[in-house]
């Protein structure tokens, strides 16, 4: 299966006087559609930085990120975020004064991907898929629970019809039961909808359900691809 995303010799560091403090050092990896990846690492290992690079929320110091073989710099970071990748954050990052369905509609109005004509109905369907019924979909998001907000965030990420879903500690603020529900959605997106789902976490429970686990330690991938607990 062709790679949807490839990173080549990715470096990220902070300049501290004459010395460079590396967060990511020479990281390379290939990601495929239809798979659920977990990047596992301790705090400060560089996993969020890595996700920021492949989500084009920040730019690497050196190296390449290729989306379907094209450098995302050529695609354009803004364009890439708009049309190629969907992002789920630990703190949900929803617009607080808008309803759940409006949050989804905002993303749909920004993307240039071709979407169904009835965007509102599509947004309701997506929210239904992630477990938010119509009544809740019409509530402002600050009236929803953390788990529900995260489901809305996932719906927003997939609403733009992108093939790459990136999630940063998506269950970090949620209880175990809710976490399980969220993970199920990610697995479904990867396996039923052929998306490439990359989740950054330090949770071994989530890692246990991944198709592929990449360990990150001090900015270096220790990628055996297998989770060993």
């Amino acid at each position: 299966m062709p790679n949807i995303l490839s990173v080549r010799n990715l470096n990220y560091y902070y300049q501290d006087g004459d010395t460079r403090r590396f967060i990511l050092r020479d990281v390379s990896y290939d990601f495929e559609r239809g798979r659920f990846y977990v990047i596992l690492g301790e705090s400060g290992s560089g996993k969020t930085t890595f996700l920021s690079m492949i989500a084009a929320l920040d730019t690497p110091k050196s190296g390449e990120i290729l989306f379907e073989g094209v450098d995302i710099r050529r695609i354009g970071y803004e364009n890439y975020r708009r049309n190629k990748a969907g992002m789920v954050f630990q703190s949900y990052n929803l617009i607080p004064y808008m309803t759940a369905v409006e949050n989804v509609l905002v993303a749909m109005s920004i993307t240039q991907n071709k979407l169904p004509a009835d965007k509102k109905e599509t947004a309701y369907n997506l929210l239904q898929y992630v477990g938010i019924d119509k009544a809740k979909a019409n509530r402002t998001v600050n009236k929803l629970s953390g788990g529900e907000q995260q489901r809305v965030a996932i719906a927003r990420a997939v609403a733009t019809d992108v093939d790459l879903i990136l999630a940063d500690e998506p269950t970090g603020n949620l209880d175990e039961e809710t976490e399980a529900g969220i993970v199920e959605i990610f697995k479904s997106l990867a396996h039923d909808y052929n998306k490439c789902v990359i989740v950054v976490t330090h949770s071994s429970e989530i890692a246990a359900q991944a198709d592929e686990v990449i360990r990150l330690k001090k900015g270096v991938f220790l990628n055996d691809g297998q989770f060993s607990g």
């Binding site: 803004e78 890439y80 975020r81 992002m87 954050f89 990052n93 617009i95 993303a107 920004i110 733009t160």
Partner: peptide
Amino acid sequence: RHEMGIYLALGARKGA
């Protein structure tokens, strides 16, 4: 600021 960050993360143009 956070909201603007969300729009940027969603790929909204700065002009928008």
